[in-house]
């Protein structure tokens, strides 16, 4: 196998001895360059754990993650993360938040002027040029997440990791940002791994949807290929039979075969 990003038989157990919980069992996934992959599953199924392992924020118990021929062992700017709650540093302005990432990543390769220019360019790409000198507490939640995306993209990562990036946003803002992400991804051709629990989001954005079984010891239940031409139009998709078929597939997986453990218990 020579895929760009491979997650090779990853197991993850938290804790030791009798209190140990097995979170992931034999997760195996191969991603090509430029692919947009969504990981979907009920809450608590360990989908964020997969993402954190790829990010290097968590270590695998057994198995390995290989990116572009190199094993991943610790976090790094080649796998930048868009965090669910944006995680901007509140004491820095919008510009400085992105500049921190850019200066750190491109210290040796770009001049100071180039780095400054690159910060402006990425912020322009997410439509945040108007708020360069605002601090995070002065802008809305959607804007914060735009800046979070800009910060992650500015590092020119090999893989962009997004952990429920739109989960904390209202439906309209979420739709806007999904459109933006689709546009940016088609422009830059990034490889993206996104964790989500939103079925529409997954079908609309992804090339493939990875559906996870319920934990503990969650694993990949099924992988659904979304064979819809890009760019995809949100409105056109609503009436598209294929789109609705994919959507139904995911829903069936989540609600028939792998019901929410909480609703089962009730």
């Amino acid at each position: 196998m020579t895929s760009y990003l491979s997650i090779e038989h990853v197991h993850k157990t938290f804790g030791e001895g009798p209190s140990a919980t097995e979170v992931l069992r034999d997760v195996d996934l191969h991603v090509d360059r430029g692919e947009f992959i969504s990981i979907i599953g009920h809450s608590g199924c360990g989908k964020s754990t997969v993402l954190n392992i790829v990010a290097g924020l968590l270590e695998t118990s057994t198995g390995a993650v290989i990116l572009d021929g190199k094993e991943v062992s610790k976090p790094g700017p080649d796998r930048s993360v868009v965090f669910q709650n944006h995680s901007l540093l509140p004491w820095l302005t919008v510009r400085d938040n992105v500049a921190l990432a850019v200066d750190k990543t491109f210290k040796g390769t770009k001049s100071a002027a180039e780095r400054r220019e690159w910060v402006l360019q990425t912020l322009d790409m997410v439509g945040m040029s108007h708020a360069l000198d605002k601090r995070p507490d002065e802008i809305s939640g959607g804007m914060k997440q735009r800046v979070g995306i800009a910060r992650a993209l500015a590092m020119e990562p090999k893989v962009l990791l997004m952990d429920e990036p739109f989960g904390a946003l209202d439906a309209l803002t979420r739709a806007h940002l999904q459109d933006e992400v689709m546009r940016i991804q088609s422009e830059l051709g990034n490889t993206v791994l996104m964790v989500t629990h939103d079925v529409d989001e997954a079908v609309l954005l992804s090339d493939r949807i990875v559906m996870m079984t319920n934990g503990p010891a969650a694993t990949i239940g099924e992988i659904l290929e979304i064979d819809l031409p890009k760019p995809r139009e949100r409105l056109a998709m609503a009436d598209n039979a294929e789109y609705n078929h994919y959507r139904a597939e995911v829903l069936r997986f989540l609600h028939e075969r792998h019901k929410n453990p909480e609703s089962e218990a009730a």
Partner: peptide
């Protein structure tokens, strides 16, 4: 210190002084 900020620092690979 929020784990979020620690994670940001780890992804950016900030050194001890930074």
């Amino acid at each position: 210190i929020s784990q979020d900020y620690v994670n940001v620092a780890r992804v950016l690979r900030l050194n001890g002084f930074e």
